[in-house]
């Protein structure tokens, strides 16, 4: 077969280019445009270069929010991933019990974010909320509007309740795809329960866990509606995360330049951390160099 060289073929990527332009590049460039200018009104603007970026990076309130954000995301990942795997392992594999448990586990995933916030807001109220009332009756002065530790614990508990099912579902499907022969071979090889988990189940879960960890990281790093409804970022600013700071700045104060710069930094952090996670997990699967060869 003769390979024909024709550079006009480059035009064939035009439709894709247009699509990507409208879906990603143009909206993103608008933000880039604002991030390097100070806009007063439709006719008055100044080019500011990297000034907004420097200001944002040096803002103590934002730095604090960033630290809180990392603390939150890493905490929920550290709880939800092992817990999700654990739940998937004990879920029944067949029969009506499997369907029943599957429905029960999936339930929290079907509830919209701000509804989750409202549910927990009511659930944790000291006067009428079951959890808030019970804790107070038990003698603990539980109060999420006054005590930062209570607020934090509640937000984490809420996120674990809402999103652990995602990890559990992903792992459940991963576990189902392991052929019986693997378990049989492990019994023949006299492997312990732990060895079966460590060398058969966990390796087969790697792929779904990559998806799970990335999704959960991105989601939790962008969390907005639930804490906003539950605590409003308080007490003080103890549960104010990045997206809430951004919203206050962009919508509340109409500081378009700084919020544009902030948005870009926010976006790059998520991109960077996701890339690090992905590369790290993929690297674990690679062959070590064959030193003998």
């Amino acid at each position: 077969m003769n390979k024909i060289q024709n550079n006009r073929a480059w035009w064939l990527i035009l439709p894709m280019l247009l699509l990507v332009a409208f879906s990603a590049i143009i909206p993103l460039m608008t933000v880039v445009n604002y991030s390097v200018q100070d806009v007063f009104d439709a006719n008055t603007r100044f080019f500011t270069g990297t000034e907004w970026f420097k200001e944002m990076l040096n803002d103590p309130a934002l730095q604090a929010a960033l630290l809180r954000q990392f603390a939150f995301s890493l905490t929920v990942l550290a709880i939800e991933v092992p817990l999700g795997i654990g739940i998937a392992l004990i879920m029944p594999k067949r029969g009506w019990q499997a369907s029943a448990v599957l429905i029960l586990v999936t339930m929290p995933l079907l509830i919209p974010w701000n509804v989750v916030g409202s549910i927990w807001q009511i659930f944790t109220r000291g006067d009428i909320g079951l959890m808030g009332w019970s804790l107070r009756e038990l003698g603990y002065g539980y109060n999420i509007t006054a005590n930062p530790v209570d607020a934090w614990a509640t937000i984490i508990l809420m996120d674990v309740w809402h999103w652990t099912p995602l990890i559990a579902l992903l792992c459940f499907s991963g576990l189902r795809s392991i052929p019986d022969a693997y378990y049989q071979a492990a019994r023949i090889d006299r492997a312990s329960r732990w060895a079966v988990f460590r060398y058969i189940q966990l390796p087969k879960l790697t792929n779904v866990l990559v998806i799970g960890v990335l999704l959960r990281f991105m989601h939790s790093f962008m969390i907005y509606a639930e804490p906003f409804v539950l605590t409003g970022g308080g007490p003080g600013s103890s549960t104010t995360f990045l997206s809430q700071s951004l919203t206050t700045m962009a919508i509340g104060q109409q500081d378009l330049g700084p919020s544009a710069a902030f948005s870009l930094i926010y976006f790059l952090i998520i991109l960077l951390v996701s890339w690090v996670f992905y590369t790290a997990i993929m690297n674990m699967q690679k062959d070590k160099k064959n030193e003998e060869a």
Binding site: A181, Q184, I188, D189, A195, Q285
Partner: peptide, 27 residues
Amino acid sequence: IAQVFQFPVVYDTMTVYDNLAFPLRNV
């Protein structure tokens, strides 16, 4: 007793050496 199945079963994350050593290390 040892059994070899129709489709090869190996422990993916282990090296060949560790795979072969596995049944012995388990005891």
